[in-house]
Design a protein around this nucleic acid. Structure first.
Lengths: 215, 215
DNA sequence: TTCGAACCGTACCGTACGGTACGCCAGCGA
DNA sequence: TCGCTGGCGTACCGTACGGTACGGTTCGAA
């Protein structure tokens, strides 16, 4: 069930969104050391209001993650007329967006927060992030893969397997290393190589699943 | 620099190892909700002793992670006479060990703990886990890849890129989903498919980097 | 103008937990 | 037997933080 994962912009008033922005900023700055007092001060509101709007600390955290995660917008990919060139373009677009998102400070913070909370089996921040991250990409990519298969551009038995291979080829060890705070892997470091990595991932995916063995 | 990452069995007395075991157990059970009182009670020792041995809470945590992470033993792979069959066997062995480790409860806990602490830029648990996880595998796998290249079994320009592709093909989205607590991905669920995944990863890697385009 | 709702700021409470102090016992060398 | 050291158990302290209460202010509606 997709519980309260749906969040459109009317869910929160502008004032509330300002509060959530403050909370997110603090989260990015201080890691999970988010205190209600700090949020109240940053957002110039009273703690009482925070509790009235979000229930408790977890509620505030959940709202922040939901609200921010829902902002991640997948690119729209034209699915109507598919040829090899368009397919490659789509794959590269997905790879680029996935990488760009993953290496962003906000994404890292959100994933870290969700993982921290997943450790305590408390709420399901993990599900929210999953739903708006990997799962959202899967939902968008799978139909394209299947359309490409129908057009005899790709060859695979399970679109699930194909999607997961694509994910692996794109993300590789970047995400886990960033989450673990690998100092030898700065954002700018990765950013500079995005285009090359994107191209390599698309090449490799097509090499593995393309109907013709060449480009 | 590999700071205090080296940990051999003489580093801790048996009694201390018992304490670390207790700490790890609590970590696995309660997520990061590890309290000094709980460890002392579980290990039947006094808090004062904990502080004497490990300095403070972070010291205990670091010691626990170090001690446990160092236990992850890579398999020894025969590198002497390389042929395609042996190479495939090695790749599958690495993939199997990597997957088996990653889906283990201990690994998940350690990674979550390290990620949580990486958020607070406190100590470098992240580095310890990285050093004993991905980096350890890299150190072991790279020479094999390079030997295989020298034997004209593989073709690549950068062994680093080749390693990272292998990592991605093996891990795919399994680790991040487990870290985020994806409920649709139980350990047993993954375990059942390990052999198939291992084989698929090796096939794909050889398809991408093998000198001959076939198996 | 008055009323009330919403909300800010701040003071306050309770508790959990990191860290310390201390009393006590067991083992061991002299 | 004496005394010392290492370590157990417990009581204790200080603080940080989640959560609540309350007085004061703004603002819109009647």
């Amino acid at each position: 069930m997709a519980l309260a994962i749906k969040v459109n912009e009317e869910t929160f008033t502008p004032r509330q969104q300002a509060v959530l922005t403050a909370a997110l900023d603090l989260l990015v700055e201080n890691g999970d050391g988010l205190t209600m007092t700090a949020v109240a001060r940053r957002a110039s509101c009273s703690k009482e209001t925070l509790y009235k709007w979000f229930g408790d600390r977890d509620g505030l955290l959940t709202a922040t993650v939901q609200w921010q995660a829902a902002k991640v917008r997948m690119p729209f990919v034209d699915r109507s007329h598919i040829n090899l060139k368009a397919l490659r373009g789509s794959l590269e677009q997905f790879a680029r967006d996935l990488l760009t998102t993953i290496i962003g400070e906000v994404s890292i913070t959100l994933n870290r927060t969700a993982i921290t909370h997943a450790a305590q089996e408390k709420d399901d921040l993990g599900n929210i992030v999953l739903e708006n991250g990997p799962m959202a990409i899967r939902r968008r990519l799978k139909p394209i893969l299947e359309a490409a298969r129908d057009a005899r551009l790709l060859r695979f038995t399970s679109s699930e397997e194909a999607y997961r291979t694509f994910f692996g080829l794109v993300v590789r060890d970047v995400q886990i290393r960033l989450l673990l705070g690998d100092k030898s892997l700065t954002q700018s470091n990765v950013e500079a190589n995005i285009e090359a990595d994107v191209k390599a991932a698309a090449d490799q995916f097509l090499a593995l699943y393309g109907a013709k063995a060449n480009t």
